[in-house]
Structure formats: structure tokens, C-alpha cells
């Protein structure tokens, strides 16, 4: 099938104000991201459309929306040449503030519950000497760089449907800290993730690992925690 270049893209946006315009024809340019679509709508068609972004290079993690149902960063999601229409909705499972902006408070509530900060072990007065190819770092390094964008939360069938669940992001953070030899709160954290709203509530949907814009694997972190909980640690 020949690729036909579209002159405009039809964008359907979930709006929270009754009666607000929901469908926009946006003239396309190359290259174009979903964020560019939204900016064009705001600049040229509807000043009142509400969405969030900051860095526009996939580092701040604030522009997450659902693009055709799938959570993604607006700034790093291209509008491919053959795309005719795009549907944009706010993230799932979080209260909508306005249009595409959600209140991340439930996400952070879960995050806070795993004691997300390092509890330094006694005597950690200077940067620890840890070899980069050590077992510990090989476990941790692929799970760093979380930008707390919430895409995994939105994409998790359990978190997003409002069930009590620590959720993929917080559990990944917990896994990183449990594996970190500099940390002194391993046992508390393993207890926290072992409760009924912890790792056992994961239903193996893999929505988290499938959408993570940074390529992290929260599902893998959850499996690791499941094993460690029984063995007392890595």
C-alpha cells in the first residue's frame, strides 16, 4: 500500500468542560510529535485547551497522555506520515484536573509508601566503592532512569482501575533500593511490598513494561521482589 502523506491530522481530544471543542483539524508539518499537535491546537484553534509539558525531550515525564488508548509521552511520540487521526485522552486511573492534565497525587501516594529515598547504612560517609559490573549494579542499573511519568501506572490494569496497589513505578523504586547495598531499610521495604496491596496484586498484564518510555521493566522488578520477599533479599 502506498504511503499517502496527509495534509492535516484530525485530532480528537478528551475535554473536561462540557461543550468544549473536541475535534481539531491540524495542519501537519514534518517532523511532528503529539506535543506539536497540542501546541498547534493551543496556538491556532483553542487557547483554552489544557495539557502539561516541560522539557519536550523525554526527560521531565510530565506530558504523559493516552495516544489512541496507549500511555505515552506526547513529546517523544511521532505523528507518522500516514496517520489520519489521533485520539488523545488523559492518563487512566488518575483524577482529571482539566482536559489532559491529571492530578498525580495517587501515584505519589503509592510512591511514598515504599520509603522511596535511600536510608543510608551506618558509616556511609563517602561515595561507596562498588564495581560497575558487580551483581548489585547489574541488577539495579537497568531499572534506574525512571522519570515518574506515570505511563506504567496508567497502563496497569490494576492501578488504573482504582484497586489498592503500590503499582509498577513504586515497586520498581523499591526493588532498586532493596538491591542497593548502601541502604539500611531492606527488611521494612520487603515487608511493605509483601502486603496484600503489594507485589501479589500484580496480574501479569505487562502494560507497565510495554509502555515505559525509558525502556524499564517494572514487571521484571516485581518478579524479583516476589522472589526476594521469600528469600529475605537478593
Amino acid at each position: 500500500m502506498a504511503e499517502v502523506e496527509q495534509a492535516t491530522v484530525s485530532v480528537r481530544v478528551a475535554r473536561s468542560d462540557a461543550g468544549a471543542e473536541t475535534t481539531f483539524e491540524v495542519e501537519r508539518f514534518e517532523p511532528m510529535t503529539v506535543l506539536d499537535l497540542l501546541l498547534a491546537i493551543q496556538r491556532e484553534q483553542d487557547l483554552s485547551i489544557a495539557f502539561r509539558f516541560s522539557c519536550r525531550v523525554g526527560m521531565c515525564g510530565t506530558c504523559t497522555v493516552r495516544v489512541d488508548g496507549r500511555a505515552a509521552l506526547a513529546c517523544t511520540t511521532p505523528v507518522e506520515r500516514d496517520v489520519r487521526d489521533v485520539r488523545l485522552e488523559p492518563m487512566a486511573g488518575l483524577p482529571v484536573v482539566r482536559d489532559l492534565i491529571v492530578d498525580m497525587a495517587p501515584f505519589w501516594d503509592e510512591w511514598a509508601r515504599v520509603t522511596p529515598y535511600l536510608v543510608p547504612r551506618a558509616g556511609l560517609d563517602e561515595p561507596a566503592v562498588i564495581e560497575p559490573d558487580s551483581e548489585e549494579r547489574r541488577r539495579i542499573d537497568p531499572s534506574l532512569d525512571c522519570i515518574t511519568c506515570g505511563a506504567c501506572y496508567s497502563s496497569c490494569g490494576v492501578s488504573a482501575s482504582g484497586r489498592d496497589f503500590l503499582g509498577p513505578a513504586a515497586l520498581t523504586r523499591a526493588m532498586v533500593l532493596v538491591a542497593d547495598s548502601r541502604d539500611a531499610a531492606r527488611d521494612e521495604r520487603l515487608r511493605a511490598v509483601g502486603q496484600s496491596d503489594g507485589v501479589d496484586r500484580c496480574r501479569y498484564i505487562y502494560g507497565c513494561s510495554a509502555v515505559c518510555p525509558k525502556g524499564l521493566d517494572p514487571a521484571g522488578a516485581i518478579r524479583a521482589l516476589r522472589r526476594w520477599r521469600l528469600g529475605g533479599g537478593p
Partner: peptide, 14 residues
Amino acid sequence: SAARSGGGPHVTSG
């Protein structure tokens, strides 16, 4: 409940 989370309402072309 799926419709509220990531999967549900997109049984169609999307």
C-alpha cells in the same frame, strides 16, 4: 472497568 484503564474502549479500529 477496562474502559477506565488502558485497554477497554479501544476494541474498534484503534
